[in-house]
Nucleic acid binder design. Structure first.
Lengths: 238, 238
DNA sequence: GATACGTGGATTGTATACAATTAAGTACAA
DNA sequence: TTGTACTTAATTGTATACAATCCACGTATC
């Protein structure tokens, strides 16, 4: 473990929330790896707080599914299996389609303009090959659609499901050959929403997810192979 | 407040989980009413534990959406507005359809038998007019379908969404006139799943939710009227 | 009489202390 | 050498103590 993630004090939030965000970020970026134990005293020292906010943050991570509790042993970062990712994607497939459909009915003129801009912005950014920025612009595009549903519960759910994919989405974006496909899919989604064609929008969203699914699942299988192939070098020292 | 909910010590779980379940139950049954504050010391005394498990339980309820945090004021039971229920139902409508579709593809022979039995069981129970039992048998029927999807993430999500409807589902079941409809809808769902007809199963599930939606929304509007009509008798004494 | 200010109590936020349990290591015996 | 029992260290689970903040009430002044 790199021992590098730091608490960001710029926010005026209860420590538990700062810790929650910090730990979540660390898990999503892979800084805390699946299977790794979250030891309270250790984390408390590292983040410069007491055990109380750490524990409360862990309770939230637990309900979010990012950590798994083992009685009397504490929390560890949840494993991402192919099955668990299949499950996530199966649900997202439907909810993303729902989002696109609802957006057709509910999107405002301003939001539609913003969506078009986000689409163009994404296309421009793809040319730069700056993966981090591309991922960011991709999120921006989809966020507009999700927000346009005006369904708070749906927004929360999609964000939570996206989290689970976060570590692998990057691999998809890194694949140059997929970039034209990505752009095409975004265009299809945008055009369908602009035309107010729910059916087409839903279909386009499904295609978009299915393509990502292929890449993500392939990556997971690759990871698993690497992992099982590795000698026992992966002992975690302090 | 009735001051009546008690901790059940029969389980061998961390106190935080016992408290979590206890508080959730109290909220879902309406024992703790929307807007009511959850004061830690108070709850700790009532349940005979310290503040620590109470706080950790509240963190989980917070993420589940059953309580709302107000900085420096603590937690209060979340309000159920018509909008929030519309949002929940909009998502459930889709996920229930997904469940039914997936069940068509994945249900085992044993599960299908169990589903038929649950269906018949429900029909028998409806005759008794025992609302609590009817609700229970209804849950049992749907649980089999949900479990048959073999998608853990979906199961968790549906259970969480069901929770939000819990308080109002009862009102629907109390309405005698709806009983034949309920039975018919269960039959339709069962037949479609038995026939392996995903499309029909999805449609049947949607109809089932839509009918419940009518009843639930009507009930919420009624509640709101009663509430706003009430004189200020609802001051909360100790 | 109304409004502004101050003070005290109640409640949350955070830290620490204590208890219980697990896990590992070591020594001793078969 | 292996197995078992005991001891000790580490970690979680729970309780309590302390700090900071907010809210309501009362008083004083305009």
């Amino acid at each position: 473990m790199q021992d590098s993630f730091k608490i960001s004090m710029d926010e005026f939030l209860p420590l538990r929330d700062v810790v929650f965000k910090t730990l979540r970020q660390a898990i999503l970026t892979g800084e805390l790896k699946p299977g790794e134990r979250l030891m309270e005293i250790h984390l408390a020292n590292k983040l410069g707080v007491s055990r109380t906010p750490i524990r409360e943050a862990i309770r939230k991570l637990e309900l979010e599914g990012l950590v798994t509790m083992i009685p009397r042993r504490g929390a560890e970062v949840s494993q991402i299996t192919e099955k668990s990712m299949q499950d996530v994607l199966e649900v997202r497939r439907n909810l993303d389609a729902l989002c696109a459909q609802l957006a057709c009915e509910r999107i405002s003129k301003e939001e539609l303009d913003a969506l078009e801009e986000a689409k163009n912005d994404f296309e421009e950014t793809v040319k730069t090959k700056d993966f981090k920025l591309i991922a960011q612009k991709d999120v921006a595009f989809h966020d507009i659609i999700i927000k346009a549903t005006n369904n708070m519960r749906l927004i929360t759910l999609i964000n939570n499901l996206s989290e689970q994919m976060y570590r692998y989405r990057f691999e998809y974006i890194k694949d140059f050959s997929q970039h034209p496909t990505l752009i095409k899919e975004h265009q299809d989604i945008f055009n369908a929403i602009k035309a107010g064609n729910s059916e087409k929008a839903g279909e386009a969203a499904v295609i978009h997810i299915d393509n990502q699914k292929k890449a993500i699942i392939a990556q997971i299988r690759l990871d698993k192979l690497n992992k099982s192939g590795m000698k026992q070098d992966d002992q975690q020292h302090e």
